[in-house]
Design a protein around this nucleic acid. Structure first.
Length: 601
RNA sequence: GAGACCAUAGCUCAGCUGGAUAGAGCAUCAGUUUGCGGAACUGAGGGUCGGAGGUUCGAAUCCUCUUGGUCUCGCCA
């Protein structure tokens, strides 16, 4: 609706300029937004025409303004400010139509069909089965889940997939430590969450390995070369390598242990996903795809896309994209990371022929994806053109980077629990337990809002600093602030119902004529275009900043204007209707960025 | 050495398809409740947009160079 008005005005200005300049050979008028709302809603700078006419741009603005004003033009008021031609849209006259649209479409307001019929596969999270999720995964998961929601809102058919990294020598490490030290304990027997249980053994392995390394060095220093060699041959790392071999050879005992521990971790991860409101449509496991990747590489070798090095390894020469050679199969024929990813990509396209596939993966893997996409194209897969790496920066702590060795990794479950308990304290200190009903559930939803909003409001490409203690405050520009606005509006609407007022869209929109009201109307009507924009850039921050803008404006409005006790019944109705549509749009936006809506908090 | 990404207020971040006086939040200081939720609202101080050139009527935004940071360039994943 607002787009239509804008383009009408653009045409109008364009036509006026044509008349004024006396030819149609001039640049299209640029459109912007004036710095202050009272100056208008659309701005047309006239600088570009100064040169053509050889005239002062301020004069041009004034004369074009007169030209338009004196003839038929779209609804709105023209004014000039320096070299700018500003249009003030009569937004209150838009309100009736806007309110009808929003109320009529409800949860669908903002959705569009620009990606109708497009199949988009979205890969994110991709944990390994050695350890629980940490803060880095949370950024990944927030982004993945949000981009999926945004693409869906644009009509795309989205398939969310997770690739579980459940094979390799690192997996052997936790298994080995378990075998060595567990004495048969299980997550059930210790009451631990499965992923944390397995993670503990992974850490145990690292310490064990370090101890043995130290002992080897000690022996070497003492000159006991033989004993040192003996210990080295039987070191934890050597054992892990042997276990990997046994595993790939199909050793029953190793496989049984792997299945058991793998399940423990996956059950734990599943619980975390559930807590974080994350879900997947399909899981892929590296254990299933690596062999397929190998056969694809061998096929490519036959086609001459790859070559076999003298030592027997299979490689590709990437000179055509300015890169070096890259190994695809080791000389012993075993696969590496990229081999598996090749197999996984091809298998996925067979399973579900997507138009595009987005990998949500940290920016440190940019090289990997560049090579991967290139190889798939070389193999002749046309769909490889639709592959995209949505790269995001690291999450660092105020003290610096997270390091598992130094124990500074922020655990996802712990963080969520900490945030929930902060929220709970807040609820209790305000004495709102009775109001919110299920305190635990409400706290969790506040924690999720805080987390998702914080993670999504930063541009994906940037590294970010996350201070678990300070960065997530519940006041200011935060997820809980947005939830709070939702709760307050809900509360007003509830009160209105209790007072027997009906909330309809059949109101006189012209009564909504103060600055905040006009601003809100324009904001709400711009929402559908932003949903589209967010999808084009795979960028949830478009939505988060919009939501903040709406909440902030409403907050100000609400503070300065009475709603239920407005001067006349008609004004009460109009304002209630405004509340209702603001709430609806907030809710719709929340759904795109992982902010749970709360009626009370 | 090569490439990618980043640099904006004390801190955390917006703004970047070129437009008017560069914006939020936190922190600091000062205010606002006889009103529907104070997790709120208002105001103040705080900036040579890393630096230097260039393009342009106009540059935080585009180009070049430069400085600093992070990451990558594994037969690890």
């Amino acid at each position: 609706m607002i787009d239509k008005i804008k383009s009408e005005w653009k045409d109008c200005v364009s036509k006026a300029l044509e008349k004024y300049i006396g030819s149609d050979d001039f640049p299209e008028p640029g459109m912007g937004v004036p710095p202050k709302p009272e100056m208008g809603d659309i701005a047309f700078p006239m600088f570009a025409y100064a040169k053509i006419k050889g005239m002062n741009p301020v004069k041009i603005a004034n004369e074009v303004c007169e030209l338009i004003s004196s003839s038929v033009h779209p609804a709105g008021t023209l004014s000039t400010a320096g070299a700018y031609l500003n249009v003030k849209i009569d937004s209150s006259s838009l309100f009736s139509e806007l309110a009808n649209t929003i109320i009529g479409q409800g949860d669908s307001y903002g959705k569009n069909s620009s990606l109708e019929g497009k199949k988009v596969m979205l890969e994110f999270s991709c944990p390994n089965t050695n350890k629980p999720l940490h803060l880095g995964h949370m950024r990944n998961d927030s982004l993945g889940e949000s981009v999926a929601a945004i693409l869906k809102a644009n009509g795309a058919d989205v398939m969310k997939v997770n690739l579980i990294n459940n094979r390799g020598v690192h997996i052997c490490k936790s298994m080995l430590a378990y075998k060595e030290f567990a004495n048969g304990e299980t997550p059930e027997s210790t009451g631990e969450k499965g992923d944390h249980f397995v993670g503990r053994y992974y850490v145990r392995f690292a310490n064990w390995s370090k101890e043995v390394e130290a002992r080897i060095k000690e022996l070497e220093d003492k000159g006991c070369k033989e004993e040192a060699e003996k210990l080295k041959a039987d070191s934890p790392d050597a054992k892990a390598q042997r276990m990997l071999k046994a595993w790939e050879d199909g050793d029953d005992e190793v496989l049984a242990l792997w299945r058991m521990m793998n399940k423990w971790t996956l059950d734990g991860l599943e619980q975390s996903y559930k807590d974080m409101g994350i879900s997947f449509d399909r899981y892929y496991y590296e254990s299933d795809t690596y062999k397929f990747g190998k056969s694809e590489v061998l096929k490519g070798l036959e086609q001459g896309v790859f070559f076999r090095e003298k030592d027997g390894s299979v490689q590709i020469d990437l000179a055509d994209i300015g890169l070096d050679k890259k190994v695809l199969l080791r000389k012993d024929g075993t696969t590496i990371y990229i081999t598996q990813d090749l197999g996984t990509a091809i298998r996925r396209h067979e399973d579900w022929p997507f138009d595009s596939m987005i990998y949500v993966v940290a920016s440190e893997q940019a090289y990997h994806f560049k090579v991967l996409f290139h190889i798939l194209k070389k193999l002749g897969y046309g769909w490889a053109e639709g592959l995209h790496h949505l790269s995001y920066g690291m999450v660092n702590l105020p003290e610096g980077k997270m390091k598992s060795r130094e124990g500074t990794v922020v655990d996802a479950d712990d963080l969520l629990a900490e945030l929930s308990s902060l929220a709970k304290e807040e609820i209790i200190s305000k004495g709102r337990e009775a109001l919110v009903g299920d305190v635990e559930e409400c706290s969790r939803k506040i924690a999720l809002a805080a987390l998702n909003y914080y993670l999504l409001q930063v541009s994906p490409s940037r590294d970010m600093i996350f201070d678990p203690k300070k960065s997530i405050s519940f006041s200011g520009n935060t997820g809980p602030y947005l939830e709070y606005m939702g709760a307050r509006i809900s509360s007003i609407l509830k009160k209105a119902c209790e007072e027997g007022l009906s909330i309809t869209s059949d109101v006189d929109g012209r009564l909504l004529s103060n600055e905040d009201e006009e601003h809100l109307i324009l904001l709400l009507s711009s929402y559908p275009a932003l949903v589209k924009q967010a999808a084009e850039g795979y960028d949830p921050s478009v939505i988060t900043s919009f939501l903040y803008d709406v909440a902030k404006t409403f907050s100000h409005y609400y503070h300065d204007n009475q709603i239920l006790k407005a001067d006349t019944p008609d004004l009460v109705s109009a304002r209630l209707c405004l509340c209702r549509v603001v709430l609806q749009v907030l809710k719709n936006g929340f759904a795109l960025v992982g902010i749970p809506f709360l009626e009370s908090m």
